[in-house]
Design a binder for these strands. Structure first.
Lengths: 337, 337
DNA sequence: GTGAAAGCGCTAACAG
DNA sequence: CTGTTAGCGCTTTCAC
C-alpha cells in the first residue's frame, strides 16, 4: 500500500497541509520543517498521487493523441513531435490508434473525454461527430495533418501540400513531362483532395490538358495501392512520369516498376509525396516532397496547450513541405511504346 | 463545468449511488429508474469522471509504455502491439520516449509511478535503478525487446535473436561465405551481445575461425553506423558477406555499398537483423531476420495485465524470429581484391 | 509558517 | 431495489 500525505504527515509530526505544500510547491514552508517532511517521505517511499491531485485541481496534466496508425512513419514522426512538446510543457500523453475507423475513433475520444484529459491532438479518421461532441464537452481539440470540413472552430496544423505538390509537378513539367499520372486521385464522384487540386492547377498553369485516365484512384492500403500502380503502368505505357500522392502509393509504384522491368527514370520517372526513410535507400533514390511530421505534431500540441486562450488564426496553420530531388526523375524521353 | 453524479441524481430524482450503479454496472437497478437516470445524464451531457473513479477504486485502468524512440519502425510495431492488447483488455496507454537516455527514462518512470498506472511495459534504456524502484513501489513492470541484467524478477518478452542470427549465419555459411563481417559487434572490452555470441557460435560450429577485424563495433546512430560500414567495406575488400546486427546498420551497409559501386550480391552479400519495410524496396531486396515486434508488444502487455498473478516462467519469453530470404545474398565468389 | 477542515467525483458498504 | 454515509489522496481557504 502506497504511502499518502497522511502517513508522511504523521511520520514527520506535521499537518497534512504542510506535506502538500512541500510537494505541490504552493505556499511557504520553513526550511527545517521541509527537511523533516522530505526525510519522512523518503523513508516511506512516498510519491504524491496524481489521481488525488487531479481530482482536486481538476486538471490531469495529460493530453490525448489519436492517430490512425502509429506504425506509419509519418504518423510516428508526428507522434514524436507531440511527445516532445508535451514533455517541454510538462504534460503526459495518452496514445491510442483508430485504425482509420470512425467508430473506434469515436469510442477513443469518448473515453479520453471521460478521462478529463486537458485536450487532444488528432489525425482524424473522417467522422466529425465525436469531435464536435468532445469540443462541446469542453475538451480542447486540435487536428494535425488533416482537418475535417465543417468544424471551423477546431484549430488545425497541416502540411502545405498544395505548395508541395505544385513544386513537384512543376519540377516534372520542367523536365519535359506532359503525360504525368497522379496515383491517388479521388475516386469518380468523390470530392478531390488538396493534392489532386494542386496537381491539376499546376498542369493547367503549364497549359497541359488533364488526361482523366491518368488520374488513378486507390484506397489507402497496400493491396489497393499495388493494384492501382500495376493497372496504371501496364495500361498506359505512354505515361512518362508518375506522381504518387502518398508514400504507400510511391512504394507500390516502385515495386510495380521493378516487376515490369522498367528502368527508373529512363523508362518512367517516379516521385511521391511524403519523404520516408526508404526513399533514400531504393535504387535510384526517390524524389519526394518532405512533409514536416515532427513539426506538425509539435505545433499542434503547442496550439492545444499554449494557445488555447488567444483566438487562433482564421483557417489552419500550414507548415512548408519541401521538394527533395533525388535520382528517380529524368528528362522526358517520350514514354515506352 | 462538467456534470457530476450529484447533478444527474438531482435531475433524475434519485440518489447518487443509483447513478453510480447505472454507470459502473455494479449492483442492480430497476429498468424504469435506469431509464430516468440515463435520460437525465444525456440531458446534462454527463460523462463519468475517470479521475473520481480511479481515486476510489485505486486503479487507473491505464498502463505506461516507454520506448527509446517511437520513430523507429520496430518500436512502432511494438507499440502497436501494446496498444492492441491494451484495447482488448480495456486499458489505456500512456506513452513516453526516453531517447535512450537513462536520466530521462528514470524521470518518466518516476512520473508514471506517481500516476498510479497499473503497470508499465518498457524497452529499457540501460539503467536498472528506476525499474527496481518502480517494481518496489508496487507497479508491475515488463520488459520488451530487451531485458536488463540483474533484474530477474522483471518478466521480459524478447525475440529469439540467437536463433535468428544463427539461421542467418548458417545460410551465409551454406552459400560458401567464410569471411563474414558482423556489423554491430560489441566495442573492445564491452560484453558481447546475444547476436554476436550467436554469430560466433555459428562460425565455430562450422569450423570457421573468427577474424576479429571483421567484428565491427558501432553506436546505435546513423552517423556511427555509416562510418562503421564505410570503414569495413573500404578496408576489407576480402570480406564476402556482411551481417548487419540492426536495421540501422543494414541501411548503412546498403548505402555504403552503393557509394562504393559494389554490386550486391555479386561483390558482397548483405543481410541484416530486423525486417523493416524498405528491405523489400531496395535493390536487390534485402535478406533479413524478421523480428516479431507487434507480437512482442502484445505479449508483453498481456504478461503485465493478465499474468500478473501466476509466477512467470523462469527466464524471459522468446518469440521466434524468422529468416526472410530475398535477393541480397549470393554464393561466395571469393571477394574483390 | 502551520494546522484543521472541507470537498473535488466517485464507489462500496450498510441500512432500509 | 434504492438512499445515506464514509472515505479514496490531495489542495486550499481560513484561522491561529
Amino acid at each position: 500500500m502506497a504511502a499518502t500525505v497522511k502517513d508522511v504527515a504523521a511520520a514527520a509530526g506535521v499537518g497534512i497541509a504542510t506535506v502538500s505544500r512541500v510537494f505541490s510547491g504552493n505556499g511557504a514552508v520553513g526550511a527545517a520543517t521541509r527537511e523533516r517532511v522530505l526525510a519522512a517521505a523518503r523513508e516511506l517511499d512516498y510519491r504524491p498521487s496524481a489521481v488525488g491531485r487531479s481530482l482536486k485541481t481538476r486538471r490531469t496534466g495529460g493530453i490525448g493523441l489519436v492517430v490512425p496508425d502509429v506504425t506509419d512513419p509519418f504518423q510516428a514522426e508526428l507522434a514524436a513531435g507531440v511527445l516532445a512538446c508535451a514533455r517541454d510543457l510538462g504534460e503526459h500523453v495518452v496514445l491510442d490508434v483508430s485504425g482509420g475507423d470512425p467508430g473506434r475513433e469515436a469510442a477513443i475520444v469518448e473515453r479520453m473525454v471521460g478521462q478529463r484529459l486537458d485536450g487532444v491532438v488528432a489525425v482524424p479518421a473522417g467522422d466529425r461527430a465525436p469531435w464536435a461532441a468532445a469540443a462541446a464537452a469542453g475538451g480542447g481539440v486540435v487536428f494535425a495533418d488533416r482537418a475535417l470540413p465543417g468544424l471551423p472552430d477546431v484549430p488545425a496544423v497541416l502540411a502545405d501540400d498544395a505548395a508541395g505538390v505544385a513544386s513537384l509537378a512543376e519540377y516534372l513539367l520542367g523536365l519535359g513531362h506532359r503525360r504525368i499520372a497522379l496515383l491517388g486521385a479521388a475516386p469518380r464522384g468523390r470530392a478531390r483532395g488538396e493534392r489532386e487540386r494542386a496537381f491539376r492547377e499546376a498542369l493547367a498553369a503549364a497549359g497541359v490538358a488533364v488526361d482523366e485516365e491518368l488520374m488513378v484512384a486507390a484506397r489507402p492500403a497496400r493491396d489497393s495501392a499495388y493494384a492501382a500502380a500495376a493497372g496504371l503502368l501496364q495500361s498506359r505505357p505512354d505515361a512518362t512520369a508518375v506522381l504518387a500522392a502518398t508514400h504507400l502509393l510511391g512504394e507500390a509504384a516502385v515495386l510495380v516498376a521493378r516487376e515490369l522491368d522498367l528502368r527508373v527514370p529512363a523508362d518512367v520517372s517516379i516521385a511521391m509525396v511524403g519523404d520516408v526513410a526508404w526513399a533514400e535507400l531504393c535504387d535510384p533514390p526517390l524524389t519526394a516532397v518532405a512533409r514536416p511530421g515532427r513539426d506538425i505534431g509539435y505545433r499542434a500540441c503547442e496550439t492545444l496547450l499554449r494557445d488555447r486562450n488567444r483566438r487562433g488564426p482564421a483557417g489552419p496553420v500550414r507548415l512548408p513541405a519541401e521538394l527533395v530531388v533525388r535520382g528517380s526523375c529524368g528528362p522526358c524521353r517520350g514514354g515506352r511504346r
